[in-house]
């Protein structure tokens, strides 16, 4: 997914004590994870040796009248720029990949905003994936009581369920069920003592939204996922107007938008947004199968699928009439 010539960045997030540092230290010991630079803003107790580790303070710059998620993390941008310049001066060894570990209470959106919009950062780095750790012992309570924990899970491209050796298989099944309601599009990996194959974290197949059984209506007032399927081609201009308006009006309650859009080209357009922050859409070379329907998964609270579907159809119709 990372752009050619840019260093892939993995954002590692997860609530306090959910096992981020354990996962990271185990990952870094894996032969596939050589030449990795690590930036953490909360140094864990487990030492990470033989790697570049930089610690950053929580320094934020609020831009204009930006919302909570569209805040530039100046500290992170400075650290990433510093990594590039120190390497070019030969002060640190070559690195290929960067892992940014957030603090346990961090909303991942400002970090993503910084990675996607800061001009020097986006020139040198490309966000590859958001990996979120969820603790099988305390995760259910955190997801119920801590909004940041839900935001971290919703933003994930991969979720690692940690500490499964410390709880019963019933508790593991319960939390997996809750995670499947919040973010069914992120593959869920189980980790014992932080052991996860890097290939599964950075590759692997993502669930097909058409195959998900989403119990949307039962959870409409909680954070839940639903999928909008569209038979006809989507006009990208109309879709852009509609989605920017939807995120402006309801962005606080829409934690994630992810999908494949049929915009009439050979391959689909890959759409991925976290809260108000939308990645630059990517054209894929081809479709995964014969089905050319657009599919958009929305993770939201208090927003219903039927309303979203009707709205998108009405905007598409208006665009057709205006064309």
């Amino acid at each position: 997914m990372a752009d050619q010539g840019k260093h892939p960045i993995t954002l590692l997030t997860g609530f306090l004590g959910s096992g981020k540092t354990t996962l990271l230290s185990r990952l870094l010991a894996h032969p596939d994870m050589g030449e990795t630079a690590v930036i953490v803003n909360e140094l864990g107790e487990i030492p990470i040796d033989h790697h570049l580790v930089r610690s950053v303070d929580e320094r934020t710059v609020v831009l204009g009248r930006g919302c909570v998620c569209c805040v530039m993390r100046g500290d992170l941008a400075d650290e990433l720029r510093e990594l590039v310049s120190r390497r070019s001066r030969g002060e640190i060894p070559h690195f290929r990949r960067v892992v940014v570990e957030t603090s346990g209470l961090a909303d991942p959106a400002p970090v993503l905003y910084t990675l996607l919009t800061e001009s020097v950062v986006k020139h040198h780095f490309a966000l590859e994936a958001v990996v979120t750790t969820v603790d099988a012992v305390n995760g259910a309570g955190q997801l119920a009581r801590q909004p940041e924990s839900v935001k971290q899970a919703a933003a994930a491209d991969r979720i690692v369920l940690t500490k499964i050796d410390l709880t019963s298989s019933e508790d593991v099944a319960d939390i997996e069920q809750r995670i499947a309601v919040i973010n069914p599009v992120a593959p869920l990996l189980r980790a014992r003592f932080g052991d996860v194959e890097p290939a599964l974290l950075f590759g692997g197949r993502e669930p097909d939204p058409r195959e998900l059984e989403l119990a949307e209506d039962a959870h409409a007032d909680d954070v839940h996922a639903f999928c909008v399927l569209l038979d006809k081609e989507v006009d990208w201009t109309a879709f852009g107007v509609w989605l920017t308006m939807l995120l402006a009006a309801h962005g606080e309650h829409i934690l994630r938008v992810k999908g494949l859009l049929n915009v009439g080209d050979e391959g689909p357009l890959l759409l991925n947004g976290v809260q108000h922050i939308v990645h630059p859409p990517q054209h894929l070379d081809g479709w995964p199968d014969e089905d050319r329907r657009s599919r958009v998964v929305v993770i939201a609270r208090g927003v219903r699928r039927a309303d979203v579907e009707r709205s998108l159809a009405a905007f598409s119709r208006a665009a057709k009439a205006a064309a």
């Binding site: 990208w236 201009t237 989605l243 939308v278 630059p280 859409p281 905007f315 205006a322």
Partner: peptide, 22 residues
Amino acid sequence: HWAEIAGGRRARDLRVRLLNRV
């Protein structure tokens, strides 16, 4: 902006018409 990257002048004209409608 991500919603305005593609399509050039034609897309911009359509965007203006749709925005006026909304």
